[in-house]
Structure formats: structure tokens, C-alpha cells
Computed example of a mutant assay.
Amino acid sequence: MTKIRVKKDKNRKAKLEAFDRLLTIMDELRENCPWDKKQTIESLRHLTIEETYELSDAIIENDLEEVKKELGDITLHMIFYARIASETDSFDMADVLNAVSEKLIRRHPHIYGDVVAEDEEAVKQNWEKIKLQEKGNKSVLGGVPASLPAMVKAMRIQEKARGVGFDWEKKEQVWEKVEEEMSEFKAEHNVEHGRALNHQKAQGEFGDLLFSLINYARFIGINPEEALERTNKKFIKRFNFLETASQQDGRNIADMTLAEMDEYWEKAKKL
């Protein structure tokens, strides 16, 4: 194994001391605070999900001060889970950290072993193959959490399939698939006047269209979840302007026509 050289971390001692301080505080809270004493792994779950979304918002807004705060909250949750588990001798924080360290070593044989990985794609493929062997999954897609939001799940499914070589070769091929799915959706949606829409078929074709668009986004380096969230935030900002500006002009948005609202919308787009 090649000896790994890394730059010496001048702040390592301070980091270890800070981590030890948080561990101590967690112990004190667990033993003395009525709320902290009452918590279980199950009761913390929804709070952790909330903190994760708050971190996501801070990252999208590029608010590094807020990112720091949210990372602190999530780190606290990780320590909290480990402390609760240690009370039943299930595992503790050392077990958690050692386990993830061993996993990183196993999944980076190009760093800690003799495997050669020339680029990022080779690293990803090695990672997925090793992960599949570790977990003993019968399917490459077996490791995709069932509870993931649909768009994120689509991304993970596609990435895992790519990890074993099941993917398009060129982005042009993916775009052709997008156009094909768009045509099929239009065929189901644009039915003749007077005919009832087959919602089940239209829904299926729309799902196929979304999946192919997510695939294309992945191919050109766009995270569709982040892209959509940025559009959500942009829409909210412009709609808030519409509400505020029209109110300042003494108008009630509920009584305005679409054309009148569009005048404020165009102003919002210029801000």
C-alpha cells in the first residue's frame, strides 16, 4: 500500500477539543435536562429531517454563516443518536466514526490499495460495485431508500445504474429520449375535443417525461432538485413582489385580472 501524504492540520487539536466539548455537553444534557432525557431515536427522526432541509436551504442561498449553524445542529443530532444507542450498548460515537472510516478506506482502493482509477467516473463505478458486495444486495438498486423524494430517487436510480455501466453514451441520445417521451405525453394529453382524458396513461407518460428530463440534467451536470428549488424560490420572490407592490398601489390581488397581475410580474423579473 502506498503511503498517503497529507498536509498537517494545524487546527487538529482545537477540532478534537471542540468535539470532546460537545460530547461532554451531550452527556450532561442527557443526564440532567428533562427534554433531552425523554428523547428517543424515533422522536429525533423528524427533527433531523427538518434540520437537513434547513441545511439544504442555507446551501442554496449560499449563506455560509447559516450553513455553519445548521451543520452544528446536524452534528448534535448525530451525537445524540450515538449517546442514546450507547445506553443499551448498541453502539457509541467511536463505533460510528470507526465504521465510516473503515468504509471510506474499503471504498477507495485507488487510495488505500492497488486499484487504479484514472478519473471520477472510475471512482464512482468502483464505489457502487464495492457497495453492492458489502451490502449483499441482489439488485444494484437495492440500496436506494424507498422513502426518498421521487426526484431525488430518480437521480439515485440513474446514478446506480450508471455505476455498473447501464447508461447512455452521449447526451444527444438522452435528449432524443426526452423528445420521444414528450411526443408520447402529448399524444396522451392532447386528445380530441369532447373525449375524456385517460389520466392513468397521461400520468404514466408524464412520469416517463420527467424521468428522461432528470436523466438529461444528470448528463449535463445539473442537479434537477436544486434547479427546481431555485425556480421555486424565484417564483416566491416575484409573487411576493406582486402582492406587496399591488397592495401599495391600493389594489386587491384577488380582484385583479391576469393581465393586470402580469404587469407587476414583469416588473418583478427586472429586479
Rank of each mutant, 00 (worst) to 15 (best):
E225Y: 13
E66S: 13
G204A: 03
D249S: 04
D249H: 08
W127T: 11
E169K: 14
Y112M: 04
E51G: 02
M151P: 00
S139C: 07
G143K: 04
V96F: 06
H77K: 06
E205C: 00
R107P: 00
F235S: 09
E128F: 13
K237N: 10
A227L: 14
I222A: 05
A254C: 08
G113A: 08
A82E: 00
A85L: 10
E51T: 00
I84A: 02
L258I: 14
A58M: 07
I60D: 14
E172M: 03
S147V: 10
E31F: 04
A245T: 06
G136N: 06
L132S: 07
I25V: 12
E229A: 08
L71G: 07
L97V: 09
E263R: 11
P145L: 09
L209N: 02
Y81W: 08
I220Q: 05
V115D: 03
K177L: 08
E102V: 06
I236R: 12
K234H: 11
M26K: 09
E260G: 01
E50S: 02
D36K: 14
H193I: 14
I84Q: 02
A245N: 08
E87V: 00
R45H: 15
A99V: 04
S90M: 11
E169C: 05
K7S: 06
E121D: 15
E42L: 08
V178R: 02
L76P: 00
T244K: 14
E266K: 15
Y53K: 12
E51W: 02
L271C: 04
R21Q: 13
M261H: 12
D114R: 06
A187V: 06
Q158C: 00
S147E: 13
N223E: 13
I236N: 12
L29C: 11
T40H: 04
I59M: 13
F166D: 14
A161F: 07
P109V: 01
R45P: 00
N198P: 05
F91D: 00
K233E: 09
K269D: 06
K153F: 01
I25F: 10
K186I: 09
N32D: 09
E169S: 11
K160Q: 14
L44C: 10
F91L: 07
L242A: 09
G204H: 04
F219Q: 11
D20A: 14
L44Y: 07
Q125S: 15
V144A: 06
R107M: 09
K170G: 03
G221L: 03
E87W: 00
R218P: 01
P149E: 08
V100Q: 15
A161R: 11
R195V: 15
E181W: 05
F241T: 00
D27A: 13
K269R: 10
V67S: 05
L209P: 00
V164H: 03
L197G: 05
A146E: 13
I253D: 01
V144L: 08
K131Q: 12
E172V: 07
A154R: 14
Q173N: 07
D262N: 13
I84S: 03
S56I: 10
N11T: 13
R195C: 12
L29P: 03
L64Y: 15
P149D: 12
